[in-house]
Design a protein around this nucleic acid. Sequence first.
RNA 1: GGCCCGGUGGCAGAGUGGUGAUGCAGAGGACUGCAAAUCCUUGCACGUCGGUUCGAUUCCGGCCCGGGCCUCCA
Length: 452
Amino acid sequence: MPLLLHNTLTRKKEPFTPIEPDHVRVYVCGPTVYQRIHIGNARPLIVFDVLFRLLRHLYPNVTYVRNITDVDDKIIAQAKENGEPIEALTGRTTTAFQADALALGCLAPTLEPKATHHILEMVALIEQLVETGNAYAAEGHVLFHTPSMPRYGSLSGRSRDDQVAGARVEVAPYKRDAADFVLWKPAADDEPGWDSPWGRGRPGWHIECSAMAEKHLGVPFDIHGGGQDLIFPHHENEMAQTCCAHGLATMANFWLHNGFVDMRGQKMSKSLGNVLRLDEALAAVPGEAIRLWMLGAHYRAPIDCSEQGFEEAKTQLDRFYGALERAGEGGKADPEPALVEALEDDLNTPKAIAVLHDLLGQLNRAKHGEAPTIASRLKASGALLGLLQAAPTTWLHGTAGAADQKIEALIEERLAARKRKDFARADAIRDQLAAEGIILEDGPGGTTWRKS
RNA sequence: GGCCCGGUGGCAGAGUGGUGAUGCAGAGGACUGCAAAUCCUUGCACGUCGGUUCGAUUCCGGCCCGGGCCUCCA
């Protein structure tokens, strides 16, 4: 079965073919590093990590670029508010972001370029746009002139008239057209700035992605991803910049956009005050549970954030890891074909997870001899989703500590109590451990325990 | 105002023109000293009104409801 992906350009699922047969090039918009990410920001991280894993399974070479935007108005404002240097803020936030991505089970992207390392490329691109007549300088600014691009608006599916009707357009006096947007703007003395043909300044919002994608992937490339809210203006403008500078029909062949994480049916947003920061969520439930919960909905559909959802995912993982621990390792294996097929259908992760559950059932029903083989297939299948890759003992017991010996001692004591039919004592021990978050399970091979 | 998504069993959430995923929770049973875990059985859903069709939850149209974008936003 060919890989099908929903393309925002056409609003349809289309068969995917890479431009170079053996090399897939992907660009996903990464964070602007001014504060810790929230659970909504985690969605593109996880979704496109699954895409990366699938593409690596299907193609010999995949280049996945996820940028770090470290120059922006919000960064300047936040640093000022914190009373700290910008580099301190962006450095710390970048490190925290990378730790968060790791906690969510995301592979490192092939490249993670920073905007501030690509100022020269941005300036060159802007110069190119001025030369081609798509941009103009005015009062220290350089603006992209949207009427110069007839197809402007084709990605987001809106006409120029619609935008003008949208009333929220800020019409600065130096704009030739209300829909024109800034490529370069002057930097105040206390703001980060770089020398340019238009004076000391800094880049506008969209140009960094055009520059970094072009430098690290070449244009056009295969897949450009991000959240739905980036379709307009961010991706529309990236597309306009890159296409006009190079006379291209498109910047990327496929544009993929993930849906939002909602809070009680509404989009998570700071103005509504309904934001759940990822580090808060990670304090309550392991990152892998957040990942499983998130992949339980199709990536384009909205997903409602709830504690119940996290807990259900945690319960499921307890069962997966419990079965994997009982089965033991079985050597190398290929992922279940049905799971690959589900992912090839526009990343149908809910269906893929159903395949995981089917394998779990097979594993639990398996005779002794075949269990390790099924366990390996389960683990190899989970790998495509970035799930079930931890050591089962680590998931079930946590990292070994002094408490383990105490637990083992109590289990021994309980075993002795049960042998002499002192069930009151045995149950008291079990209750005591339960109160400490330790669940005992009596199996044919003896008593095992796990964290609740 | 313009454009765009959705409304599936108690909950979450796939999918399909006719054999109605999956998970969580629930019920019954097996196992267990009792639990837990596991296994077996069980639940008969597709907003609303029309249309197309031999047959629609699935296609088309109206309506109702919810959500999103329209230069802060994953």
